[in-house]
Design a protein around this nucleic acid. Structure first.
Lengths: 242, 242
DNA sequence: GAGTGGTCTAGACCACGCA
DNA sequence: GCGTGGTCTAGACCACTCA
């Protein structure tokens, strides 16, 4: 960690990741006070600003609590989980967060003209082609979620049709240079019987619908997805901060 | 904005708020480029770090997009709203965000021993006293939400019983020096008919349940609330970021 | 290659908490 | 009153974008 950092990973991030590791590993117990900023500066051989940047990051992740005049403390939320919907992850990651080992089955992939709602969300002309991926997510033999992803067809080379949807859609998008960095999600409660793609198992359940548009770094909508999570098979959390 | 800032409001925040105002007012249109950091430094007479702190704040709020080597741009989410559940607000604020003018009616306030679930969420001994506030939120004559707030009784002086629950609970907590700064919320879909406090109107509806524990600055749970929002009478959004 | 943001430093002074 | 975090500055160099 020299004065001029040529490495790809910013110093602040390295420090944050190391602190995170030490916290998660139990070196710092919940409720414990972390070393002071001055001590961290010395330990990591970085400036105070760098330490503070790292600390702020951990704070925004809900991992530490910084108290003016007192110190930085490991947040103790009584063992409850610490990451949630406010962090953009793929559906599969989101599900795994909730402690479920999931399997994905692609039901279908189709290319067709966009309907009005799809076109407006993706900010493309109505009727222009989109790629639709329909997937089912299982844990064991129980369906835990159903997802429908729509992407503008011109963003997805036909060569990807084979692979798209068998694993994370995010992976494919990343590879195409279309990294989703922001998503605007709406949450709704729906009856399985009102969802036409639901199978018999799901149609008797209540579902939590995550209706979201994903944007890339320059603000282009790159995917519109509706994910129906079967109520009770997950724990959806959101960390809300002021 | 002098070199030594004695005022309560940090410079970075002042800059952020001014930029926000200028963006919202339309001075900078969606998609437009903001002035460069150097220009902002000069305009606001602050250092670059201060400008960047402000810019980062706006970015995390989803208002601007910062592009390395290019500039800062007003995010264009197609007119969709920009604040959401990830920001901790009171229920009444949350509702007003969604464009609804709401009225609150306190149904009841009671003091009684905590049940197991309540005690565990509030991290207090089972059976110790809690204050329960039951409220109904209306828009016109339609019920849009029902809320149940539970707080440890020892935090709420009996003198507050008169006022608590007729307006925002947050207001009272603030006054008592119990500012909620973080909340961990779970989201569930439930049937109105499964909620025993629902009235006839609500019991036929689907509800989105926000089940949350509020924490103060030092990580103490200060309130446990269940808010049932009638599906379709709101738009719940979450801005998710990487 | 000029201009923009990304990262980092050293040093200063202020405000809060707690013994 | 000491130690902790909160804010701010000036200056440096790197990395990216775009013409």
């Amino acid at each position: 960690m020299s004065a001029t950092n040529t490495a790809r990973t910013p110093l602040a991030r390295q420090v944050a990741e190391d602190l995170r590791r030490r916290i998660v590993s139990g070196e710092f117990a919940p409720g414990a006070r972390l070393p002071s900023e001055a001590e961290m500066c010395e330990h990591y051989r970085v400036s105070r600003v760098t330490v503070r940047t790292a600390a702020k990051a951990l704070e925004s992740q809900g991992l530490v609590d910084i108290r003016h005049g007192s110190g930085m403390y490991v947040v103790d939320l009584g063992g409850r989980i610490r990451s949630g919907l406010q962090e953009l992850r793929s559906i599969t990651e989101t599900i795994e967060e909730s402690g479920i080992t999931a399997h994905v089955r692609r039901v279908s992939l189709t290319r067709r003209p966009a309907l009005e709602a799809e076109a407006s969300r993706l900010d493309i002309p109505r009727g222009s082609d989109i790629v639709i991926v329909h997937r089912e997510i299982f844990a064991g033999d129980e369906t835990v979620a159903i997802s429908i992803d729509a992407m503008p067809a011109h963003l997805i080379p036909p060569a990807e049709d084979e692979t798209l949807g068998h694993a994370s859609v995010f992976g494919v998008l990343d590879r195409l240079g279309l990294e989703p960095v922001r998503a605007l999600a709406e949450i709704h409660a729906v009856r399985g019987s009102d969802v036409d793609i639901a199978d018999d198992d799901v149609s008797e359940q209540l579902l939590v619908l995550l209706d979201q548009v994903h944007f890339d770094r320059i603000g282009r909508p790159i995917a519109y997805s509706k994910t129906y999570f079967v109520e009770g098979r997950f724990q959806f959390t959101i960390l809300r901060t002021r």
